[in-house]
Design a protein around this nucleic acid. Structure first.
Lengths: 338, 338
DNA sequence: TTGAAAGCGCTAACAT
DNA sequence: ATGTTAGCGCTTTCAA
């Protein structure tokens, strides 16, 4: 084994104060209100800081000021780019404002989310970001009782815990249906995993089709996360269940599912989009680089992260927040798969 | 705008103590050493806790005990599954031990990493996870001076800041070369993005080939993150530069790159593996679901996360740490693309 | 411009 | 089994 580094006695503001011949609160001012100090004093302090490599203890500061400088973010999955891309923008903006974010993964499970919220609360975050609007009753109660600002992302609702930023999943699905109709497709199907938002979209998709006199084959929703495997399986099932070849369009719950559909179609020598057309959801990075390039629905995840950050900052600063519902919309990106 | 919820006066251990008719330290004991309390006292305290929904303030506790219960983790990219899959396992294990992790993204930039380490230090994490072994001098100094346990993942080195867990990139690349040779391929190329670890692998790959009397076309390393686009571009360039069709094998810097290579090959009607064979790196989730299934090098990222967690816990607890270098190895997964 | 004093919400001795 | 006391490293009045 290797030698334990003995803890050197920790450097604190008191240490710096002693070195600079001032009192500890003066050192605190050097960091928080440098303008209020005489240049000479500031200089001596900063010299001591440099010599020691001292870094102020935010935790102690947070305790004193009741500002932890910490945020909590809970996403369903940290390996799913759909949810993480947003966190990246959110974190970057927040970091600039002096916040660090604790990222946690709920695994699409409301009970686990509730547990994580409880854990977060112990760190007294100044704000919490939650994915989606479906939380356990207990979770909502804890959140409300804590009085901590909360931003819910990806969905819109009339009764957010605090603020929500997202888009209309139903609207996007209806737009997809209308787009396919206008393109002349006559047979429709969905390929989705068992995910609350995807299911809501598919329902709206089928409804819009029905309103226009068309039926929709609802692919059986597959368990687990969206994956190429699920996409392949979904397409295989659809074909085996008799989806007509020609004038058919498939609405996928994500780009990854669509990718799976395309791979399976190729393996079965079914040509896309001539024989079967495909639409994805999400417009992930490589949607444009597939062959054929994937037609999909773009959600501006950066905007989502940014608006979420802005909304949360406003709530933390107790500014007037005019809208508790922020709609970032969606766009259909036409490429060649449909 | 909507009504600001007025902050109710915060519930603390003192509040609970008053309600339960005990002193505040007794409430502390109820959480940290419940066995030392009489069942009746414990009961009264817990009742008050339930009534108020009180959650102990870990930050204050951390200040008092010098145990922040916080960890910092810095990865190059939070949207790249390669780096995040590990964090997920790591976080889950650490959470069970009562730690929360602050996740940060360095963007493959040592200077940014240095900044993030400095920011982390302000939160007095009990341990830090770093990706890779290349850090700025200043960064290493800060780390060592802080005395905080550090685990470096993905690479092995004889001189880690503290502990490292990874595997031999050179060894993996040489194994790939030998594997291709044994399969009878005669023309070799690499397809990589401009990434330190990928470049090291490619060098070792070419060297092993040379040692066996074969040349290797080094695909020009593409800028940016690995993507399907880069993979397509790399393959296109290789073909245009005259890579022979037949008995050729391409060593990719990641599975995503390999996926791009396969897509571009298909678009050019080049059959894999008959005309050109492809090997990926990483064995990501859908490697097996591609068509053809991708032959690749598996790195057990869960093991990486787990061993990293274990090593860090050992260091935090100041246990004897016999090995500062933990090799988790790699395996070649034979599927059909090579 | 700086110092003195108090206190943030806990944990950890040490008493009893 | 519980209370008393101190103190973690800061920020924030209030004085001077």
């Amino acid at each position: 084994m290797h030698d334990m580094r003995d803890r050197p006695e920790p450097v604190t503001m008191a240490t710096i104060a002693r070195m600079a011949g001032v009192t500890q609160p003066t050192v605190s001012r050097a960091f928080n209100h440098p303008a209020r100090l005489s240049p000479e004093t500031l200089d001596r302090i900063m010299q001591a800081v440099r010599q020691t490599g001292y870094v102020p203890n935010i935790v102690a500061g947070g305790l004193a000021s009741s500002r932890s400088r910490v945020l909590a973010a809970i996403v369903p999955s940290v390996v799913n780019i759909t949810y993480v891309a947003l966190i990246r923008t959110f974190s970057a903006i927040m970091r600039q404002r002096g916040y660090q974010v604790m990222l946690m993964e709920s695994g699409f499970d409301a009970t686990e989310e509730e547990r994580l919220v409880a854990l977060s609360l112990a760190h007294r975050p100044e704000g919490i970001l939650l994915t989606g609007i479906q939380h356990s009753e207990q979770c909502r109660r804890m959140l409300v009782a804590s009085g901590i600002p909360v931003v819910e992302v990806w969905d819109l609702t009339r009764s957010p815990v605090d603020v929500c930023v997202g888009f209309s999943h139903e609207g996007a699905a209806r737009a997809a249906a209308r787009h396919m109709l206008s393109r002349g497709y006559r047979h429709f199907a969905t390929a989705a995993v068992d995910d609350a938002r995807a299911i809501r979209r598919n329902l709206a998709f089928a409804q819009e089709l029905r309103a226009n006199g068309h039926a929709c084959r609802m692919g059986r929703d597959l368990p687990g996360l969206p994956s190429i495997r699920s996409g392949r399986a979904a397409f295989a099932r659809l074909i085996e269940d008799g989806l007509p070849i020609g004038q058919s369009a498939i609405f996928c719950s994500s780009d990854v599912m669509a990718q799976g559909v395309m791979i399976e179609a190729r393996a079965r020598s079914i040509e896309i989009p001539r024989e079967v057309a495909v639409m994805g959801f999400g417009d992930q990075d490589h949607a444009a680089d597939l062959d054929p390039p994937l037609t999909t629905i773009r959600i501006d995840r950066d905007a989502l992260g940014q608006r979420a950050a802005e909304a949360l900052i406003a709530r933390i600063d107790r500014q007037d927040v005019p809208e508790r519902r922020i709609d970032i919309g969606f766009t259909i990106v036409e490429r060649n798969s449909l």
